[in-house]
Every structure is written in C-alpha cells, then in structure tokens.
Amino acid sequence: MAKVAVAAAQGKKALSLLLGKCVPCVKQNASKIRVQHFKLDTNLNMYYRENSFFYAHDPQALCKPGDTVLIRELPSKVTRLITHEILEIVYPLGDVTDPVTGKKVVVGKYRDDIKAEDKLFGRTESAFDYDKAPPRGSQEDKRDFSHRETYTKYHEDPNDPQPYAV
C-alpha cells in the first residue's frame, strides 16, 4: 500500500485492471464496458449496486455485447472517452464452459450429454449441430439486432430505414 501511496503522491497512477460486461455501443473502434461495484449507504448501512462505464479501445471488435471482459487502463488516453483497452474475454455470452471439466455447458447439461440423449431417441437431421454452426455474429444486422440499443420509432422517413427502431 505504501508503494501505491508514494506513487499517488508523485502523481503516478497505477494501471488498474477491471472486470466488466460489454454493453451495446455505437462508437467505432471502441467497446463500452459496464463495471459494477457496491457502494455503502451510510444512512441505511446497506450496500447498493452502482455502475460505472468505461470505453475500451477495441479496433478489431474482439468483444461483443454481453461478454464478460477484463480491461486495463491505458498509460495515456486514446481519445477523451477511450481510456482502457481490452485485455481478455473471460466469459463470452452464450458459450459457457464448465471450469472443472472444461466441457461446454448449456444451462444444466453438458453439450455432449445432450447429443448422447438425442442419439438414444434417434437424432433427426433437423437437430442443431454445434460442429457445423458458424461463430456468433452470423445473423447480426440480418435477424439479430441485439448488438445495438433499440428505441421507439419516432420518425417516418423512407430514406432512413431505422433498423434498430421498435
């Protein structure tokens, strides 16, 4: 702690790591990360959840909305808003891995078990196959519009299709 205090006194800032969740964002080359923390309400002596948002530099679009990511503070700001960078995607959304066995999980079952169960009943051709499935993002902007925040349609304009309007 002493080192941190000395560094702070010298005006140096420790590069911090934060764990957050990626949220929909319209900014290019950046991802918006929501970091949750608890704040003590001294009046009620209870902790309340608070959100803080960070913009992380992400030119390759590594993380997608919903992913849990680790971000690191940059030594210098890229822009006025972009202060962090993406370090690692810890938990991708909708692709859960069991930490003990390392197998893929869907809700309460292993994917392998689901497949084995289907085989016992007689697997049909219509069943979903993980091996043939493309990575996340195949339906983005076609049928899946969940990567952006939606809004109530407020204007009628034939030149403006407004795909994210509800």
Partner: peptide
C-alpha cells in the same frame, strides 16, 4: 444467454427477427 449459436440458428430456421 444460454447458447448464442443455437439462438442464431433458430432465428434463421424460424425466420424470426429479434430486437
């Protein structure tokens, strides 16, 4: 949330748009 690949597959199969 559970299974993104299956979610996208079902949108394609059932011809649905998810917003």
């Amino acid at each position: 949330q559970w299974d993104y690949k299956r979610f996208e597959w079902i949108l394609e199969k059932l011809n649905l748009v998810y917003k």
